[in-house]
Amino acid sequence: MITAPQTTRRKGSVRAGDAPWVKWPLIALALTFMLVVLVLPLASVFVEAFAKGWQVYLDSIRDPDALSAIRLTLTASGIALTMNLLFGLAAAWAISRFSFKGKNLLISLIDLPLAVSPVVAGLIFVLLFGLHGWFGTWLDDHNIQILFAVPGIVLATIFVTFPFVARELIPFMQAQGTEEEEAALVLGASPWRMFFSITLPNIRWSLLYGVILCSARAMGEFGAVSVVSGHIRGETNTLPLHVEILYNEYNFAAAFAVASLLSLVAVVTLAVKKIIEDKTGRRGEKA
């Protein structure tokens, strides 16, 4: 009944979107937009990075401050990833397998870091661990340095990347249900055996997808980390902060060389994401 008028209308005239004078300009517009907003900036990073040749490029990356920034970025994102992996699994497990009071609140709370501006996220840690913050005096008395040191950077990174793994897993595990796991338990498998032989293989692509997004975000984080870092060269500068420093020192080729490393991370992320989507047949739709 409802579809009938549509079919009759179709016979009479071509749908507005199908006319060539609508279709081609729209495609051209979309392509131009993509070229200007996405492809050109990315390409310009690499062009600028190699503007002064290979030697300058390699030297900029082998510079001790750059190496230390790379090390710090990998350390911080490695720890953040591990923590968020464990947390994400636990949270997704709890939410998809059990029902309890405050479950919806928990789901909303997991999303909180996505809603909070990264700068505010950084300031939260200043308020907590700064010398005049809540725990400031206690930390100072015990000679523990969190803010303007590696622990602060790790905490800020964990905070901003908190939702990524959990958000990927929760809908997937909810959709999957518990039958296979119950079968395993009934057949006498230990909980660990069940987890490693049933649950983990089932969720592995979703998990990997979350891990990829989480690590890309962790390595690229600027705002929150900038607030808590203290900008000490060779000590508390992550890669994105190092790019800013080099740029501010008129060292444009070096800035873009280091930026190209971050862009490579982005390209690799994109490629892996595509592979996972192909493997699992999830294009756009959230499983």
Partner: peptide, 20 residues
């Protein structure tokens, strides 16, 4: 000697907040 650079006011604030 390690260096940290930024806007003067912001840097002073970091030191007040505990930058060593």
């Amino acid at each position: 000697i390690n260096q940290s650079h930024g806007g003067s006011g912001a840097q002073a604030h970091s030191v007040i907040d505990g930058l060593q």
